[in-house]
Every structure is written in C-alpha cells, then in structure tokens.
Simulated assay, not measured.
Amino acid sequence: MAQEEGGSLSEARARVGALHGITDLAQKLLFYDRWALDYDQDVAALQYRAPRLAVDCLMQALPGPPNAALILDVACGTGLVAAELQARGFLQLHGVDGSPAMLEQARARGLYQHLSLCTLGQEPLPSSEGTFDAVLMVGALSDGQVPCSAIPELLRVTKPVSSSVRWGCSGGLVCLTTRTNPSNLRYKEALEATLDRLEQAGAWERVVAWPVDQWELATSELELVPGTSNSDGFISGIIYLYRKQKAAQVEGGRPSPQSPAGL
C-alpha cells in the first residue's frame, strides 16, 4: 500500500471505504451531502484518475471541435469532470447530481451553464430526447448508486445520427466508467450485460472498452488482487465509450418497442 502523508490519505480511505459499504441510495446521498466539502481533497489523496481518463477517452472519439459540443455530466459531483472538460476546450457543459451539497460545490466552480438536482434511477433526466452531443457518467456506476436499469435514460438524451451530422459522425457519444476491484465485480457483470443488450438491440455501438490498472488507491488490502500490477496499492477500473445509433429511440428509461432488449 502507498505510504500515507499527514493522515489525509488514511482519512480519505476511511471515508471512501464507508461509502462503498452503503447500499441504500438515500443513505448514500446523505453521505455525499456531508462529504461535499472534503470530497476534492479526498479523491486527490487517493489519486483518483477517472475524470481525466474518461475525458481523454471521449476526446479521441470526437470528430469535431470540443467548443461546439453540448455535454451532459451525469452524477457530476463537485465538478471534477467539468474541470477536465474545460481544460480541453469544452464550453457547453450541463450537470446533474442527486446531492444538493455536491451541486453547490459544482456551482462554485463556475464551469457549468446549467445544473439540476436529479436522482437517476428514481426519476428521468431533466432534458429532452436527443439533446446532447455527449453524455458522461464517471464514478457513479456501482452498488447503491446508479442502477444499471437507468442506462437507457442516458441514451434517450443523447443525440442520434441525424442530429449529429454537423459533426460528421454517426451519432452522439456516451462515456461510462466503473471500478473492477473485487467488491465491484458483481455490479460490473450486471452493467456489461445491460450494455451488451443495448448493443445487440441496435441502440448503440461500442467504440472502446479501456481497462485501467491504476484507477485509484485501494481503501483496504481486501481490494487488492495478489500477483497483479495492483500490488502497488491501486485498484483497477474500466472506461466504456458508445456511439448512439440512428435506430435508437429510448423513452422513459427503456428501449422502444422496435428494440427487443427490455431491461
């Protein structure tokens, strides 16, 4: 495990470890409210790399200038993804999150044009169908957070082929991340089954699935996998990038009748 400095790493590990142990969504949102002021320093202590890596992945698939893209950051938290997007030239940023206190921190960054309170999985996203050129959800796909059944809602608000012609691409992009450490493997399996069903139904096509060894520092020895590169104290994760297809018409969080893949 990495050497601790000044107690900040041990405190961050304790908080993140406690978060992972909460499976009730309401309780998890309350935890995020209490955590909001310390969140950025904690994830920095854990060397959390997902926001930067997810935006890097998205950038590689964009055929047009970033300042022309309308982006939705789902489960935006304090705005770490927006900071990475803004640094790469993205200017049109919308965000949603289920924690009012996290949204306050995101608003203070001054990077979003619009922020909304929304608990994905319990209510629809506050946007019309086919609104965004790209949708990202970084760090919220695990037990007790966003359920796999909410994935089609991300597709619903993503622009289809006809709305993305100016980009010269075949549809809007959806970027998702999850951890691949031992305690999250059951969720990852369910998530990938959902992603695959949507692809088989023609709702989207996979652009890339990018495994990452050094995702963030582990919160306990139990999260490490003996005999792998994770012995340096890091857990692993994965980034998925999909492109919405023309046939995809996703309404109310479910594929349309022409799509055989109900979730």
Rank of each mutant, 00 (worst) to 15 (best):
residue 85 L to M: 11
residue 222 L to N: 12
residue 168 G to W: 12
residue 58 L to C: 08
residue 248 A to I: 01
residue 153 E to W: 02
residue 24 D to N: 15
residue 18 A to Y: 10
residue 9 L to Y: 07
residue 26 A to D: 15
residue 255 P to S: 02
residue 177 T to F: 03
residue 76 C to F: 01
residue 53 L to M: 11
residue 18 A to D: 12
residue 37 L to R: 15
residue 10 S to E: 14
residue 13 R to I: 02
residue 73 D to K: 01
residue 23 T to W: 09
residue 106 A to N: 06
residue 179 R to M: 13
residue 33 D to R: 09
residue 52 R to T: 09
residue 133 D to C: 03
residue 29 L to E: 14
residue 259 S to P: 03
residue 87 A to L: 12
residue 202 G to A: 10
residue 73 D to R: 00
residue 263 L to H: 11
residue 24 D to S: 11
residue 257 P to F: 02
residue 20 H to V: 00
residue 240 Y to C: 02
residue 251 E to N: 08
residue 15 R to G: 00
residue 187 Y to G: 06
residue 250 V to E: 07
residue 7 G to A: 09
residue 52 R to I: 00
residue 70 L to T: 10
residue 227 G to S: 07
residue 176 L to K: 05
residue 261 A to C: 13
residue 145 Q to P: 01
residue 183 S to K: 14
residue 215 W to H: 04
residue 198 L to H: 05
residue 33 D to V: 05
residue 139 G to S: 06
residue 99 S to K: 09
residue 159 K to D: 04
residue 163 S to A: 15
residue 67 N to Q: 15
residue 60 Q to H: 13
residue 30 L to C: 09
residue 29 L to H: 12
residue 98 G to Q: 10
residue 155 L to R: 07
residue 42 D to N: 11
residue 124 P to L: 02
residue 184 N to L: 03
residue 244 K to H: 03
residue 88 R to C: 08
residue 119 T to W: 08
residue 53 L to R: 13
residue 129 E to C: 03
residue 159 K to R: 14
residue 208 V to N: 06
residue 29 L to W: 09
residue 209 A to R: 14
residue 187 Y to Q: 07
residue 70 L to Y: 08
residue 132 F to E: 00
residue 204 W to F: 05
residue 107 R to H: 12
residue 214 Q to R: 15
residue 38 D to V: 07
